[in-house]
Amino acid sequence: MPRYALKIEYDGRPFAGWQAQADQPSVQETVETALAKLDPGFADGARIAAAGRTDAGVHATGQVAHADLLRDWDTFRLAEALNFHLKPAPVAVLEAAPVEEDFHARFSATERLYMFRLVARRAPLTHGRGRVWQVLNPLNAELMREGAAHLIGQHDFTTFRSSICQAKSPLKSLDEIRIEEIEIPHGREYRFFLRARSFLHNQVRSIVGTLERVGAGSWSPDRVATSLAARDRAECGPVCPPHGLYLTGVGYPRDPFAQTD
């Protein structure tokens, strides 16, 4: 039974998240429904596994999943066929690649990359609505970078962890937080890039919401360190909304899509 990796892009707005749910639309179910048109195994209830189980409203430009199919496929034709059957859902298969049977989209991953988009401008958003978090006033990017520096490395991230997080431990290593500031018409966009092997539930949104308070001048950069050390969810800043968050990439010991580049 050949195994294929799929690189998937989606707009998270219509979905209750990646993971299949009994009574709500999900990205996983949408992809599996398309696969069922092509493969008898999925018509009989086979499942796919993904690198990141994104929450409701969260987007992806580089989600990775794997699927075991009953027949061999040319990877270009597989991606084309899936995209045909995915219409009109805002989900696209960017690439498909054959992988070894021990490849697992989630458990083989060595890092995950997220981007959060925040726009500061007075006028309401039109084109970016539902895809970025909007605030009214400009932020101080340098102060946010100072605050973010306190979070790099291995820490107990209890403060920045959802109260319903199911991870066994709050210890995580955060490898990178990079903040870019971009001038846009009538405002500014701030892009937060975070990289780690794995993240706790709501960790990225909790961090960005806290850093926004630093950029707005409500928090000092050092307060981020104090909040982290408290190991207390009540010490976290506001949790920002999901619609500015994107899963942009997943790292593996060997890039499963390198052969198709």
Rank of each mutant, 00 (worst) to 15 (best):
A81G: 13
A34Q: 05
L118F: 03
L118R: 00
Q24H: 07
A60W: 12
L136A: 04
F107D: 13
D44I: 03
S108N: 09
D102M: 08
R131A: 07
D68Q: 09
K87D: 10
L82M: 13
A120E: 00
R112W: 08
Q28K: 01
V99Q: 11
Q24D: 06
V58P: 07
A89H: 15
A46G: 08
A65R: 00
Q63R: 06
Q134H: 06
V119M: 03
D44Y: 02
M144P: 15
L118A: 04
F42I: 04
G41P: 09
F84R: 14
A60S: 14
L82S: 02
A97R: 03
T61M: 02
L113M: 13
G62Q: 11
F116W: 15
N83H: 01
T54M: 10
R53Q: 12
A67N: 03
V132S: 07
L78F: 07
P124W: 10
A97W: 04
P40K: 01
N83A: 00
P88H: 00
V132Y: 07
L38Q: 12
R117Q: 14
A67L: 05
H66S: 02
G52W: 00
T54W: 05
R106G: 03
L35D: 10
A36V: 01
A123Q: 05
R117N: 13
P40S: 01
D72Y: 13
N137E: 14
A123G: 01
A79Q: 06
A67T: 05
H127S: 12
R117V: 14
V135Q: 00
W133E: 03
G52S: 09
Y114N: 10
T110Y: 09
Q28D: 03
G62H: 09
P40W: 03
V58F: 10
I48F: 02
Q134T: 02
V93G: 05
A56Q: 10
E101D: 15
L78N: 02
A67Y: 04
A79G: 11
T75H: 08
T110M: 10
A50I: 05
G52K: 00
Q28I: 04
T126V: 15
N83L: 03
P40T: 02
F42K: 06
G45A: 03
V135F: 00
A141H: 05
M115F: 12
L69Q: 03
A123D: 06
L113N: 06
M144D: 14
E95L: 14
H85K: 08
P40G: 02
V64P: 12
V132A: 11
A92P: 05
G52D: 01
F107C: 05
G41Q: 12
R117E: 15
L78Q: 04
P124G: 01
V119D: 08
G62F: 11
M115G: 12
F107I: 08
V91H: 11
L35S: 06
R47I: 09
L94E: 15
H104A: 07
L143R: 05
V132I: 12
D102C: 10
D74A: 02
E32P: 09
R122F: 08
P40H: 02
E101M: 06
R53C: 07
Q24Y: 07
G128K: 03
R131D: 09
T33W: 04
L70V: 03
A56C: 04
V132W: 05
S26G: 07
W133H: 07
E29L: 05
A46T: 11
A34T: 09
K87T: 12
R53W: 08
R131W: 06
R122I: 11
D23G: 02
V99P: 13
